[in-house]
């Protein structure tokens, strides 16, 4: 009897009601600039202040999990890649919020070793090739789209490796494990400027036309006032304020703008063409 009572008490203690409002945010670590983002504490604090909600940030390593968490109302706002957004809007009807200015004008880079004889997409024939994660926009979807558009040998695409991440793609290219690979331009900049990769070892041989990529979204049922306050918080980030500049830098952003679902039609089309969206 006493045991039961104890159990009930302990369970009750675990199930403490949360304070007024909680905003559960989730961010995939692809745009992670480094150590600080294990927790993204400055951003969490900033969002908490602006939205007056308790912000809980999770950093999963798995895109699918974030999409399903949005479907499942386990996450309120999330930072998604372009293709993940297209998936999530189809599966979960998520609402677009804001994105970085640069996300509206994003590029994938095709890289190879400095000494290789690959100079254009057409030269890829007969070479090994690496994409990043299978549902990365800039690491797989758009590069494949442009490869198909310029009639690259389909063998290159069907035999391509999936490295699971932009960083891994660049490492694989730099160490000569694949002949070429496609990746996010922001990660390329970061890894070459931080010295994680010797810039002299790799060469960019093709840059895609611009496309839309990363975006902050809200789950379908999220209170629209709260969603709006999140958008407002991002839009208000001011590079002139040193504290806010720090957050913008951590997000590799200069400025946030309002995102529009219609802009993603081209991505939808690319995903459907590649058979990645059903």
């Amino acid at each position: 009897m006493r045991l039961l009572l104890f159990a009930a008490l302990a369970l009750a203690a675990c199930n403490k009601p949360a304070p007024e409002e909680t905003l559960r945010a989730s961010m995939i670590p692809t745009t992670d600039p480094g150590k600080a983002t294990r927790e993204m504490q400055p951003l969490v604090d900033y969002l908490s202040r602006h939205t007056r909600a308790k912000v809980e940030m999770t950093v999963p390593t798995n895109y699918a999990a974030v999409v399903e968490a949005l479907v499942n109302d386990q996450v309120d706002i999330a930072h998604l890649g372009g293709f993940t957004y297209v998936q999530a809007s189809k599966r979960a009807g998520v609402r677009p919020l804001v994105q970085r200015e640069r996300d509206r004008n994003f590029h994938s880079l095709f890289v190879t070793q400095q000494g290789s004889n690959i100079r254009s997409l057409a030269d890829l024939k007969g070479h090994s090739f690496a994409f990043g994660d299978v549902n990365s926009t800039s690491g797989h979807l758009m590069p494949e789209y442009y490869m198909r558009g310029s009639k690259v040998d389909p063998e290159v695409i069907s035999k391509a490796l999936y490295t699971g991440g932009h960083d891994a793609t660049l490492l694989a290219v730099a160490n000569g494990k694949v002949d070429a690979g496609a990746m996010d331009e922001a990660v390329f900049e970061r890894m070459t400027s931080s010295g994680k990769i010797d810039p002299a070892k790799v060469r960019v041989f093709y840059t895609t036309p611009p496309f839309l990529d990363y975006i902050w979204v809200a789950r379908k049922g999220l209170d629209s006032r709260l969603a709006q306050s999140v958008s407002d918080a991002f839009l208000a980030l001011d590079p002139a304020d040193p504290a806010q500049k720090q957050i913008l830098d951590a997000l590799a952003a200069s400025k946030y703008v309002v995102a529009d679902d219609a802009d993603y039609d081209k991505l939808r089309q690319a995903a459907a063409q590649a058979g990645l969206l059903r």
Binding site: S26, T58, P60, N62, A64, A65, V66, E68, A69, N72, Q74, V75
Partner: peptide, 8 residues
Amino acid sequence: FVVGFGLG
């Protein structure tokens, strides 16, 4: 289960 039950 990660997909089915979500994060955590």
